[in-house]
């Protein structure tokens, strides 16, 4: 139990998906211009992350591993993720139209979001149990959301500030991301002490 929460919180705060593991940086930089898009993407990421963990985990441990085909994980995982995304899109469109409206257009983009494949691979690499793998995926998704949410605010502020010509646009955004990353470093020792 304690293990689960330790994983959950350390993935959200210390090993933040975007700010310290550098997964999903592309969408982080691309979509944080306004709150609506970034939240749509975040919901989609959390959702796809959980579902594809639930799918890839058994595939790896009951199919690939016993057959000695562990090396095929990259190919299989990416295909599974792509297929999952397709199925999810169809299902959500039918069953939960409001949710689909919120994240519909972001679903197809997620296949090539390295955050998803990255978290799947990390779950396997760390040999988490199924529950812990789900927790780590949930934490990763929440961490992504948190980073997106905070950064939308930062960028709104950046838009109105006076920046040297060459730094306009992306460079200033990256420097701001660096400062946000420093802020997250502050969580360093917290989790260890909280759960020790």
């Amino acid at each position: 139990m304690q293990d689960m929460f330790k994983i959950l919180f350390s993935v959200i705060l210390i090993d933040n998906l975007v700010l310290s593991r550098f997964l999903g940086v592309c969408s982080f930089l691309g979509l944080t211009k306004d709150l609506k898009n970034s939240m749509g993407m975040s919901v989609a990421v959390i959702f796809v992350m959980l579902v594809s963990t639930a799918v890839t985990y058994p595939i790896y441990y009951f199919l690939l591993e016993p057959a000695g085909l562990g090396y095929l994980q990259t190919v299989i995982f990416i295909l599974v993720i792509a297929a999952t995304v397709q199925v999810l899109e169809a299902v959500i469109r039918k069953v939960m139209p409001p949710l689909y409206d919120a994240m519909g257009i972001f679903l197809p983009l997620i296949t090539t979001n390295c955050a998803i494949l990255g978290v799947m691979l990390i779950n396997i690499q760390e040999s988490y149990s199924f529950v812990n793998a789900i927790m780590s995926s949930l934490g990763a998704g929440l961490g992504y959301t948190l980073a997106m949410f905070l950064f939308v605010g930062v960028r709104e502020k950046l838009e109105t500030s006076d920046i040297p010509e060459s730094f306009k646009g992306l460079p200033s955004t990256l420097v701001a991301a660096s400062i946000l990353s420093v802020a997250f470093m502050g969580f360093g020792g917290v989790i260890e002490n909280l759960f020790s």
Partner: peptide, 24 residues
């Protein structure tokens, strides 16, 4: 700090700005 994630973002930002300038 340049070996840490924060430094990565910062250096990347500065280099993008440099290439902006060169291209300009």
């Amino acid at each position: 700090i340049f070996g840490l994630p924060a430094g990565g973002f910062a250096i990347f930002g500065v280099l993008v700005a440099l290439f902006n300038k060169l291209n300009h």
